[in-house]
Simulated assay, not measured.
Amino acid sequence: MPRRVDHDERRRHLTAALLRIASTRGLQAVSMREVAAEAGVSLRVVQYYFTDKRTLMLSGIAELAARLDRRVRERAAAIGTGLPPRTVFEVVLGAILPTDEASRADQLAWTAYYAAGLTDPAEAVDGRYAPDALERWLTGVLQRAVDAGEVPAGVDPRIEVVGLLALTNGLVSSVLGQQRDVADAQRVVAYRLDRLFGAAGD
């Protein structure tokens, strides 16, 4: 009796191969044939699961977003339930930083997508997986902290979140570029959070 194929697992396997190429050689090296070679399958298999390169590329963005979500949830679960706003930001921003080989590879893949989208609109990140949703969610978290008096009333939650995400993404680039190490990047994030959340008690 022929072995049943787990189609979802096969798609994940192919997507992982795509992301390995993106993180090591950039999106310019990605093709259906290269993904097949990296995954150890025939080109026909890749074409069966992904109708074209665009569909394949979108699967990579979706998987990167899912990996970040899993990383955040795992870190939050390790701490406990009912996390205070300050801890929520520590968990989320800390999950964005490349703290190990897996998260470093993911950030290199994100950077490859971002760089490709700057020069080729066809390679731009699909809006469904843009960081807008994360920005909106964190803004809600910070707004509730403002309402609860945990940060000064004059703070603009959206502006603060935009700045924190921009700071963290900038630190990602500096870590990937070996300008600074992860510990230094974490200290910078902690310093900024101290100034935001510590100011309420001053």
Rank of each mutant, 00 (worst) to 15 (best):
V155L: 05
G163W: 07
V161Q: 01
E160P: 03
A148R: 09
D147K: 05
Q143M: 14
E135H: 12
R128T: 09
D156S: 04
D147I: 02
A153V: 10
L138A: 03
T139A: 04
A153N: 14
R158S: 03
P131S: 07
V151S: 03
G140M: 08
V161A: 01
L134Q: 15
D147F: 02
D147P: 05
R144M: 04
G163N: 06
D147C: 03
D132C: 08
R136H: 13
V155M: 02
R128Y: 14
D156K: 06
W137V: 06
V146Q: 15
V162C: 03
E150Q: 14
V162Q: 15
E150G: 02
G163K: 11
A133P: 08
E135G: 06
A130R: 15
D132E: 11
P157W: 01
L164W: 01
A133I: 12
R144T: 09
T139P: 11
A153T: 13
L165I: 05
A133E: 11
G154C: 04
Y129I: 09
A130W: 15
L134H: 13
V141G: 05
P152G: 00
E135A: 11
R144D: 10
G140T: 06
P157M: 00
R144V: 04
A166F: 01
L165S: 01
E150F: 00
A130T: 09
G154L: 04
A166T: 11
L138P: 13
L165G: 00
T139E: 08
A166Y: 03
A148Y: 06
P131V: 02
A133Q: 12
R136E: 11
I159R: 15
L165D: 02
V155A: 00
V162S: 03
D132A: 11
L142F: 05
T139L: 05
D156A: 03
A133F: 08
P157D: 01
D147Y: 04
L134E: 12
V161S: 01
G163S: 06
A130E: 14
V162D: 11
G140L: 05
I159A: 14
A153K: 08
T139Y: 09
P157H: 00
G154E: 14
D156T: 04
A166G: 06
V155K: 01
Y129D: 07
G154H: 10
V146K: 12
R136G: 08
I159D: 14
W137G: 08
R136Q: 11
R128K: 12
G149Y: 02
L164P: 03
I159H: 12
L164V: 01
R128Q: 12
A148V: 15
E160I: 02
A166S: 14
R158P: 02
G140H: 11
V162T: 11
D156L: 01
E160R: 09
L134C: 12
Q143G: 10
D132R: 13
V161K: 02
R136W: 10
W137D: 13
L138V: 04
A166C: 03
Q143T: 12
E135N: 15
P131K: 09
T139S: 14
A130L: 08
V162M: 14
A166D: 13
Y129C: 08
Q143W: 15
P152Y: 00
A130N: 12
P152I: 00
R144S: 13
V162I: 09
D156H: 10
L138Q: 07
A148D: 07
Y129W: 13
A130S: 10
E150H: 03
A153R: 10
V161P: 00
V161C: 00
A133D: 13
G163P: 06
G154S: 04
Q143I: 04
V162N: 06
